[in-house]
């Protein structure tokens, strides 16, 4: 692999994967702490009907209306989940299951009916993403990384994810204190006049934004994995929320890079000529990170716990 092919073909994909992982991974910390891990799962599923509707309404595969549609679908589903949970007095998981399966089913039917299936909209695409298709043909050398006019030719999905990531970092930085408070003790937050519902809703809105921005490039399964695995890994490594956020960010980016290389180079190293799904591989690597942490984390790993019990 020479520098130019790396820059032209691998670099944009790595950038996409890592950016998607980073944004979702940061927000995932609060989902995991609030026992809402599966909110990421539910939201990534309801993105499908949203984009199909966005397509049907505007008739274009332009990303903005489709993202708007997805965002609206995500918010509707969150409202519906809350409604079912309260009226049916069922656990949040069951309410989520009802909503996201139904909305996904609606998306599938809409897709079949609308003929949108022909224009690069299909279910498999929504699940698996299309990480490898990102290219940066204008790049001619590493010097281009510093030249704005050539950087501007990076795929639009990269720019979009970069902007969304900035928004996520700003959100977490500005509302760090509030997020921490409502995740730990929502009732107390309410007595302070810091509405736990408002902060919780803002978090879900950001999750929806992250999921919608990332899914087109990396697919919803990677989005789900990134909401959970880096945060869960970090949760096992530390008892400080700040440290946890940094670790999760590191794990997310490392999964993005290592996963991509494992997918691109792994088979060649094994001497077989094939390409495997990069998005899938990134999620698998994130899962491996978490497995290692579950077993070997200094204090909360299974081995450390066993040793403690024996003493």
């Amino acid at each position: 692999m020479d520098a130019i092919t790396f820059l032209q073909f691998d670099f944009p994909s790595i950038l996409l994967g890592s950016l998607a992982a980073l944004g979702c991974g940061l927000l995932g910390n609060f989902l995991v702490l609030r026992r809402q891990s599966l909110m990421g799962d539910a939201i990534s599923h309801v993105v499908l009907p949203g984009i199909v509707l966005g397509f049907l309404v505007t008739g274009t595969v332009d990303s903005l209306p489709m993202m708007l549609g997805a965002g609206v679908a995500a918010l509707i589903s969150v409202g519906l989940i809350e409604l079912i949970r309260r009226l049916g007095r069922v656990e949040p998981g069951a309410a989520m299951g009802v909503v996201f399966t139904s909305m996904f089913a609606a998306g599938v039917l809409l897709l079949e009916q609308s003929g949108a299936g022909g224009v690069h909209l299909d279910v498999e695409h929504a699940l698996y993403g299309n990480l490898e298709s990102a290219v940066w043909l204008e790049a001619t050398g590493f010097g281009d990384l510093l030249r704005p006019e050539i950087l501007a030719d990076l795929p639009v999905s990269v720019t979009r994810l970069a902007v969304v990531n900035l928004a996520i970092v700003a959100f977490v930085a500005l509302l760090y204190k509030e997020l921490k408070l409502v995740s730990f003790d929502p009732l107390f937050a309410d007595t302070l006049g810091i509405s736990s519902r408002l902060v919780g809703t803002l978090l879900i809105v950001m999750v929806a934004v992250a999921a919608v921005a990332a899914f087109d490039a990396v697919g919803s399964i990677l989005v789900i994995a990134m909401f959970i695995c880096p945060a869960a890994t970090a949760r096992l490594m530390t008892d400080r929320l700040g440290t946890q956020l940094w670790i999760s960010a590191g794990v997310a980016v490392a999964s993005g890079i290592l996963g991509y290389f494992a997918a691109a180079l792994g088979p060649q190293l094994l001497g077989v000529d094939m390409s495997v799904s990069a998005a899938g591989m990134i999620a698998v690597v994130a899962g491996l990170f978490q497995t290692v942490a579950m077993l070997l984390a200094p204090r909360y790993g299974v081995l450390a716990r066993r040793r403690l019990q024996r003493v």
Partner: peptide
């Protein structure tokens, strides 16, 4: 929850600190 005793006590001041 990943918080220290000091973190939790500081939460009592969040209203004064402001959004």
């Amino acid at each position: 929850f990943p918080a220290t005793a000091l973190d939790v006590v500081t939460m009592g001041l969040y209203r004064q600190i402001g959004w």
